[in-house]
Simulated scan of single mutants.
Amino acid sequence: MASEDPLDLFLVRNSAYFFGQSCEKAIVAPDKVQFLVDHILCASRELPLTREDSQYWPETQYYNVVKYLHGQGSLELVSDNPKKYSNKGVIEKFGLRGDSDQYSVVTPRQKIVERYEFKDLLTDAYPGSILNIMGSSYIVKEIKFDSKEILLSDLPPNLNGSYTLPVVKSGISNLREESQHKAAKIPTFSGELTVNNSLEEYIMVKPGGKKTQFTLTQKIDPYRLTTIGMWLDFPEDIYGVLHAIEHLIRVVLPWMVMCERGDLGSLIEGNRIYVYDNHTGGIGLVESALPMVNELLQRCYEVVISCRCENGCPSCIHIPQCSTRNEKLDKRGALTLLAGILGHKAEAVNAGPPVAFKTRTELKLAARHIEKQWNDK
């Protein structure tokens, strides 16, 4: 069933592209050492590792990883004949819901209603932010970092219908280039990078659109994510144009590498768009996309050219993950730039295949009016 997601609507308008594809290509790389480190640590906590365990992983990598973890102090030798290695307690670093610490959300009635990772404090649960949980609205009163608790207060009546927006400052550091994809139509690189996110201010938006900016009443340490990513250098540094292309990449790439949109992150600096695995150390998603950069840009072009809106909509360049609520997006500029890179003729924005309605909502509203006309006859 298609939703109003940009990619879903693109596939509805271009069904041949969907049905003409081979089976999905899942990104599975169990033999990569960066993944074996986690897997072997978890396995060693259940039972000590023995020689027989080498059958479950590539033998050479298995012994190398065990030797490495033992040298790092994460595994200890508990038996010398035969050799057995056991976990030294670092398993607590692994969580099913993410890589960072979990913070409990506590209501004024002392009930835990939700849990957030530390990185989510900067975007969702910072002091002063409004949270809607289980049909009730709250405002974050305080974060207790020692006990990892987010304390809530009931939302005052004068703030009903209001919402908050974080003013997150992001940047890239510790960039280490590992490879360049020379076949791409624009310079494309990949390697390690660190994403730095910090929050000092937020915006309160009241009903009617009135915005007021506030400074955080409580300091939150910056969140730093060291991961694997790629960066694309475009010939122009017009923010609105690159912002739209960044959104298109966030729409298309998850389908090409089979992941959730939240598994990827992105950032613009100057004329460069960074795309990275939104997981500590990377999980191989962006690396697998490096040889497909030309196809990625082509798919981005097809999504934007096939949407008949004029300035951008949820069917093409608007995404819910945008921290600026889809402001400063230049759809026409993105179309022109992508057409130039790919060698296409810069067609009109609405030159896609004829479509009566862009979204299911429009279709249903039109049907409602038709029904009224029938009833009036």
Rank of each mutant, 00 (worst) to 15 (best):
S86G: 09
T107P: 04
L41S: 02
G340Y: 01
I317A: 05
C316M: 03
A43K: 09
C307D: 14
K372L: 14
L11G: 00
C322K: 02
M204P: 00
S137E: 15
D120P: 00
Q180M: 12
L96H: 02
A351H: 06
Y103W: 02
G208P: 08
V65D: 02
L216M: 10
T212P: 01
E310G: 02
K84R: 14
F19C: 00
E4S: 13
L296N: 03
A244L: 09
T188Q: 03
Y202Q: 06
P157G: 06
G89D: 06
D154R: 12
P58A: 02
Q180T: 14
H181Y: 15
D8W: 00
A367R: 09
G161H: 08
V167M: 13
G333Y: 04
K32H: 06
Q218S: 11
A2I: 07
S22I: 00
E295S: 08
G229F: 07
S323N: 04
L9D: 01
S162A: 15
V90E: 01
G312C: 04
N311Q: 09
E302C: 04
H70Y: 09
M256R: 11
Q72Y: 02
G209A: 08
Y276W: 10
S170Y: 06
I40D: 02
I133D: 12
E92H: 04
D5S: 10
D221K: 15
I370W: 08
G20D: 06
N197W: 05
A184G: 14
Y116C: 13
Q72R: 12
T164D: 11
G98D: 10
V168F: 06
S147D: 13
V349L: 13
S170I: 02
L297W: 02
G95T: 06
V241E: 14
H247R: 12
E76Q: 10
G284V: 06
C259N: 15
H70N: 13
E114H: 15
Q218E: 14
P187A: 07
E177S: 09
V167P: 00
E4W: 00
G128Q: 09
N160W: 07
T188M: 09
P108D: 06
F234S: 10
T60Q: 15
G352C: 05
A334H: 02
I186N: 13
C300Q: 05
R250E: 12
T361F: 07
V28K: 03
L297H: 09
I283E: 10
L248T: 12
L155R: 10
F234G: 11
G95Q: 12
A16G: 01
V252M: 11
